[in-house]
Design a protein around this nucleic acid. Structure first.
Lengths: 120, 120
DNA sequence: TCCTTGAATAGATGTTTGTCGAAACAGGAT
DNA sequence: ATCCTGTTTCGACAAACATCTATTCAAGGA
């Protein structure tokens, strides 16, 4: 599972929303990222991972933070993974997740005017 | 319809995702904004409005840009309105929409580390 | 007043999504 | 090999959602 390629992510680009109208294709790509973040559980997962010491968190930590079953957490992690926002790597018994900060930065830049140059 | 209060929006705040884990409540509030932006049509509507000359666009302009019925566009505008991302005002025959840039800015700040001071 | 046009609401429908329990898989330890 | 624990996949189901048609409301112009 580790090397799952960001299906969307890296080229979900474009100039800021307020600069030019999005093309239909750009909108579809962008919407996948926003949809991945449109669930409270996934947002908390994202921030738990992002704010965790060392920049990564194992599923065991994450599961304990919610009143949800393991499969449900796993499902949400998969959605985040397939959107390109996070990656997971198995080390021994546990699976560790970390965020892709560039994707968040890119998304952030799209929301405010004058943020195009903030890309990598 | 004009004075529809932002149901979510202005206090959908918090420190950046990567700084502290979101509380359950914060995540619920934030997720409403992201959900509003999780549809390609709504994203294009948002950018059409934001990038339109004068910072506002009338529904007639917006409807023409899509291969969708009027009611469907109206529905999406309502979702954006209720999320606090845009406001609509009727002037004579037409209804004009404009974005709330502060809400976008706030959202943008949440995504990148060190963006707390970007609030109003 | 009536009619026309722009926009929102109401109701219906097919699809997507969040959640669960059960089962399968992965790795360590005994 | 056999268990045990952590994680993912599978199958199912209810709630939420995007879209449509038909209807209603709002504002002007005849």
């Amino acid at each position: 599972m580790s090397k799952q390629l960001p299906l969307v992510a890296m080229d979900a680009c474009c100039s800021p929303l307020a600069r030019d109208p999005l093309t239909a294709d750009q909108a579809v790509e962008l919407s996948k990222l926003f949809k991945a973040m449109s669930d409270p559980v996934r947002l908390r997962l994202l921030s738990l991972i992002a704010s965790h010491a060392g920049g990564e968190a194992c599923v065991c930590d994450l599961t304990d933070a919610f009143d949800l079953t393991g499969p449900t957490i796993s499902h949400h992690l998969k959605v985040l993974r397939e959107s390109g926002l996070i990656t997971g790597e198995r080390r021994g018994t546990w699976v560790y997740y970390r965020v892709h900060p560039e994707v968040l930065a890119r998304l952030s830049a799209v929301l405010v005017p004058g943020g195009t140059e903030a890309l990598a």
